[in-house]
C-alpha cells in the first residue's frame, strides 16, 4: 500500500472537566487525503475530541500534532491559520448575519485575492445559498444552515476539515446531500475527520473509523471491516 503522509495525530490525550475524565488516553491518526470517521453514542466524547483538536479545549495531558508540529494548547485562531477548519456541532451560525457575511468571515484569516472566486465555488456547490446571499442566516432552514456552516468552514481553504454531526436534525434527503458533499471535499484533496452519530452514513463515507465509548477509543479499523463487525452492527447500526 502506498504510504501516505501523516496529517494529524493525537497521542494519549486526556481531558478533565472538573473531576470527571471526559477523554481518557485517546490516540488516533488521520493521514493526508483520508476521510476518517469517529463514531460513538451520545455523550461518548466525540465532540470533545474535535473541540480539543481545534483549540477550544485544552487537553490535560497528551500531545496533538499537525503535520509533525505539536499544536495542543494553541488557541483556535492559531489552529485555523495552520489549515484546520472546524464545522461545529449544531452549525453555530450567526443568526442575524447574512449568508454572504458568513462566507466573508469564513475567509477571515485570508488576505489573498481569491476569496470572491472561492465564494463563487461555494455558491456553485450550494446554489440555494446564492439565491439567499442577502438573507439572514437565522431565517434559513436547518439543511440550508448546515450548508452555510460547511461553506463557512471551507472558505478558510483548510487542508483538514473537522465535521461535527453534520447530519443532525436534517431530513433524510438532506442527509444524503450533505453526505455526498463531504465525500466530494475529500475527493478534491482535503482531509476529513467526521464525527457522526449516524454511524451508517459515516461508515459508508469513511476510509477508516474509530469507535469512542465513554471517552476511550475501543475499536479502530477500515470502515468496511467495521460495517461487518457484529459488535458495531449491533451497537451503532441498529441491526
Amino acid at each position: 500500500m502506498h504510504r501516505r503522509l501523516r496529517m494529524l495525530s493525537l497521542a494519549n490525550v486526556t481531558l478533565h472537566r472538573g473531576r470527571t475524565r471526559v477523554l481518557d488516553d485517546v490516540s488516533l491518526v488521520v493521514d493526508e487525503g483520508e476521510l476518517v470517521a469517529l463514531i460513538g453514542a451520545n455523550g461518548a466524547g466525540k465532540t470533545t475530541v474535535l473541540r480539543t483538536i481545534s483549540g477550544i479545549l485544552k487537553p490535560s495531558t497528551g500531545t496533538i500534532t499537525f503535520r509533525g508540529k505539536p499544536i495542543q494548547g494553541a488557541d483556535p485562531g492559531a489552529i485555523v491559520r495552520l489549515g484546520i477548519a472546524h464545522c461545529p456541532e449544531e452549525r453555530k451560525i450567526w443568526p442575524d448575519m447574512s449568508v454572504q457575511e458568513h462566507l466573508e468571515l469564513g475567509a477571515f484569516i485570508r488576505n489573498d485575492g481569491d476569496v470572491d472566486a472561492d465564494m463563487e465555488r461555494i455558491f456553485e456547490t450550494f446554489p440555494v445559498l446564492k439565491e439567499r446571499r442577502e438573507q439572514l442566516a437565522g431565517t434559513l432552514s436547518g439543511g440550508q444552515q448546515q450548508m452555510l456552516a460547511i461553506g463557512r468552514a471551507l472558505m478558510s481553504r483548510p487542508s483538514l476539515v473537522l465535521f461535527d454531526e453534520p447530519s443532525l436534525g436534517l431530513a433524510p434527503i438532506m442527509v444524503e446531500t450533505i453526505g455526498t458533499m463531504i465525500a466530494g471535499i475529500r475527493d478534491r484533496g482535503a482531509t476529513v475527520l467526521l464525527v457522526e452519530q449516524n454511524a451508517s452514513l459515516a461508515l459508508r463515507l469513511a476510509d477508516r473509523a474509530y469507535v469512542l465509548e465513554t471517552g476511550r477509543i475501543t475499536l479502530t479499523g477500515p470502515a468496511q471491516a467495521m460495517i461487518e463487525n457484529p459488535e458495531v452492527h449491533r451497537a451503532y447500526l441498529g441491526g
Binding site: S54, G55, I56, D75, P76, G77, V80, R81, A85, H86, P88, K92, I93, W94, P95, D96, M97, E101, E104, L105, G106, F108, I109, A149, R152, A153, M155, S156
Partner: peptide
C-alpha cells in the same frame, strides 16, 4: 462584522480565526 459574529456566537467566531 467580526464583532457582530463574536456577539452572536463566540465559539464559531473563534473557529474562523477571529481573535
Amino acid at each position: 462584522k467580526a464583532m457582530r459574529a463574536t456577539f452572536q456566537n463566540k465559539e464559531s467566531a473563534a473557529l474562523v480565526g477571529i481573535r
